[in-house]
Write a protein that binds this DNA or RNA. Structure first.
Length: 418
RNA sequence: GUGGGAUUAGUUCAGUUGGUUAGAGCGCUAGUUUGUGGCACUAGAUAUCAUGGGUUCGAAUCCCAUAUCCCACCCCA
């Protein structure tokens, strides 16, 4: 039996981990600069949390969750996203008593049982953040600018920001009636999904990819034109703030988003390089969520970014970084006694925080040289009888071939100065 | 869930109309006279040809099933 990675899972290999680490560190740095602090939540929660939080009519909940019964008979689900868990923690740990806004970011794996496609996995990674307690558009503009700054720091360009407002329960209720009246005469001619949507969630009909090209859908009334005064003012406020900061956007009335908890502001950052899975980052406001989870009524907003898609985009834009050499020096040895000395030197260097390697494979002297060269280790020192006697070694710069005599005990000091 | 393409060494790929011991590049190991690498040259190791059936004197090659991967749709990050 040859064991292989399971469908939808991936090994992240040493050869590619470097860019993951850069992205993780950059995201954390940017979040910190906005006052967000990291939260780590469990990988699984009780199933009900997601049914309630994400919405039990959504695709994510109805057909994509990894749900199982544990040995204690509890229904457990591997998190399909991060918001529900963070909201649970916010309520459970009494964070509503903290000064607002309560800002948190996270870096998680998430799990969805889906058919594979480019940029889509069953176990995948998300960077995300949530902010609780701020109801005005300032915070909407803030989290969007977190993404904008993050992309800049990553060297990414031309990732389009699409924004929309899907209103609040008030204006959405009115609009849904309007939409049903509009679609009623046409339902029969539309796709099966839309016929189902007509009854359950007519809002989704305007997002339909099958019927989306038809005039019926194109000319449908748009929610954004029927917002209540408060929602309209909120959206206008967001637009004004984005313009003031200098973040360009396009209004995309078709963004509906598939998670039930969204209200008012929704947004996506979209690229053309990630296949049809062009959404690198998606998020929005969820003013009702904390309340429906039986916490104190608290406005909230957040986003999640697909890390695999982010790195796909980084690759397409050619901004991935070369793997650095963590090992600064290779100590080659010519004899058993020299090898022992090399081990001692390496131990001292590592205690001084300097990466080094010496032969572990029983290689010949020549083969040790080749190994050091192939690994791209920038410095080399050879220990043989001469060095053991003199207590001095020539440290060679592999890039230019220059050699510098250094005391055996002074290698660390020499490297620290270069 | 629907449609299309693919699966041969660690990896990327050749492999003729079915015909002897299945090849190459990269990578790996060693050597090119034993105190200086990258390049070059030489040699070497590594393949249940995805899995299970079938057709045939004979299958990597043809047929069926299954699995996995890729692309598109759907949905999302």
């Amino acid at each position: 039996m040859r064991y292989v990675t399971q469908k939808g899972t991936k090994d992240i290999l040493p050869s590619e981990i470097h860019n993951w680490q850069i992205a993780e560190q950059t995201f954390a740095d940017v979040c910190h600069s906005f006052g967000y602090e990291e939260i780590r939540i469990p990988t699984f929660e009780q199933t009900d949390l997601f049914q309630r939080g994400v919405g039990d009519t959504t695709d994510v909940v109805t057909k994509e969750m990894y749900t199982f019964e544990d040995k204690g008979g509890r229904s457990i689900t591997l998190r399909p996203e991060g918001t529900a868990g963070v909201v649970r923690s916010y309520i459970e740990k009494g964070m509503s008593s903290l000064p607002v806004p309560v800002r948190m970011f996270y870096n998680i794996t998430a799990f969805r049982y889906e058919k594979m496609a480019k940029g889509r996995f069953r176990e995948f990674h998300q960077f995300g953040l949530e902010a609780f307690g701020a109801k005005g558009p300032d915070i909407d503009a803030e989290i969007i600018s977190v993404v904008d700054v993050f992309f800049r720091k990553m060297g990414l360009q031309n990732i389009a920001l699409h924004i929309n407002s899907i209103g609040c329960p008030n204006c959405r209720g009115e609009y849904t009636k309007l939409l049903k009246d509009y679609f009623r005469p046409h339902v029969a001619s539309m796709c099966e999904d839309c016929q189902a949507r007509f009854e359950k969630n007519p809002l989704r009909m305007i997002d339909c990819k099958v019927d989306g090209g038809k005039d019926i859908v194109k000319n449908a009334p748009r929610l954004i034109d029927y917002l209540c005064d408060d929602c309209k003012e909120h959206f206008e406020g967001l637009k004004a703030r984005l313009e003031a900061i200098g973040i360009s956007y396009t209004i995309d009335p078709n963004i509906v988003r598939g998670l039930d908890y969204y209200t008012r502001t929704v947004f996506e950052f979209v690229s053309e390089n990630v296949g049809t899975q062009g959404t690198i980052c998606g998020g929005g406001r969820y003013d009702g969520l904390v309340g429906t989870m039986e916490g104190p009524e608290t406005p909230g907003i957040g986003f999640a970014m697909g890390v695999e898609r982010l790195l796909l985009e980084a690759e397409a834009q050619g901004v991935l970084k070369e793997k650095p050499s963590y090992v600064k020096i290779y100590i080659a040895s010519m004899s058993e006694a020299a090898k022992i000395e090399a081990l001692k030197i390496c131990y001292a260097l590592r205690n001084a925080g300097i990466g080094c390697e010496t032969d572990m494979a029983g290689r010949s002297f020549k083969a040790q040289m080749k190994y050091a060269g192939k690994q791209g280790i920038p410095y080399l020192a050879v220990i043989g009888d001469d060095e053991l006697n003199s207590g001095e070694v020539k440290v060679k710069n592999m890039a230019d071939g220059s050699e510098t005599p250094v005391k055996l005990s002074g290698i660390g000091e020499f490297l620290a100065g270069n």
